[in-house]
């Protein structure tokens, strides 16, 4: 009974966390945009600065990408970014749509002039905003249902066993 309830609550928490994380990611990209356009900060430092003020687990994506960029010799920015996203992704509540937006952004990070970089960052932000709206909708629909389903499912199992 307890286990079933917990599973239900955990699932509900994922629904609740997703829009929040997407929002945070959008804020992070806004900060990255500022670093690129006004600060002209090199990418490793820009990512480290943006990551420094984020909460876990998003913080780790940016900090890991920054660390990989500073250490590795052969790889490109795209490879470092992709590796960091792939490593940290299972710990986030986000889905494939957001991941795709981030990976697509990674493919162009640092490879063009300022105006072009800003376009790419903004495109990723628009993409994430759409995902955020969908995520809130899902949260509204399914968060309570998951909790109830967890409790009820557990109750059903108990009844069947008795």
């Amino acid at each position: 009974m307890v286990a079933g309830t917990l599973i239900g609550f955990a699932q509900a928490a994922r629904y609740a966390a997703r829009p929040g994380q997407i929002r945070e990611l959008i804020h992070a990209l806004k900060r990255l945009e500022t670093e690129i356009s006004y600060g002209q900060t090199p990418l490793p430092e820009a990512l480290a600065r943006v990551g420094g003020v984020l909460a876990e687990p998003l913080r780790r994506i940016f900090l890991q990408a920054a660390a990989r960029l500073k250490e590795r010799r052969e790889t490109t920015a795209e490879a470092c970014w992709t590796e960091a996203v792939e490593t940290v992704w299972p710990d986030t509540a986000m889905r494939a749509g957001e991941k795709e937006a981030l990976l697509r952004l990674g493919a162009s990070l640092g490879l063009s002039d300022r105006a072009d970089q800003l376009k790419h960052v903004r495109l990723a932000m628009v993409h994430l905003e759409a995902e955020e709206t969908a995520a809130r909708e899902e949260q509204r629909k399914y968060e309570k249902m998951c909790r109830s389903l967890g409790v009820l499912g557990a109750a059903l199992v108990v009844i069947l066993m008795v």
Binding site: I36, Q40, T41, P42, L43, P44, A46, L69, R73, E74, T75, T76, A77, L109, G110, L111, S112, D113, R114, D116, Q117
Partner: peptide, 16 residues
């Protein structure tokens, strides 16, 4: 590409 990324510190936008 790797050489270009390294000498620009992965940031072409910063060396326009």
């Amino acid at each position: 590409r790797s050489l270009l990324e390294r000498i620009t510190r992965h940031s072409l936008y910063a060396v326009e």
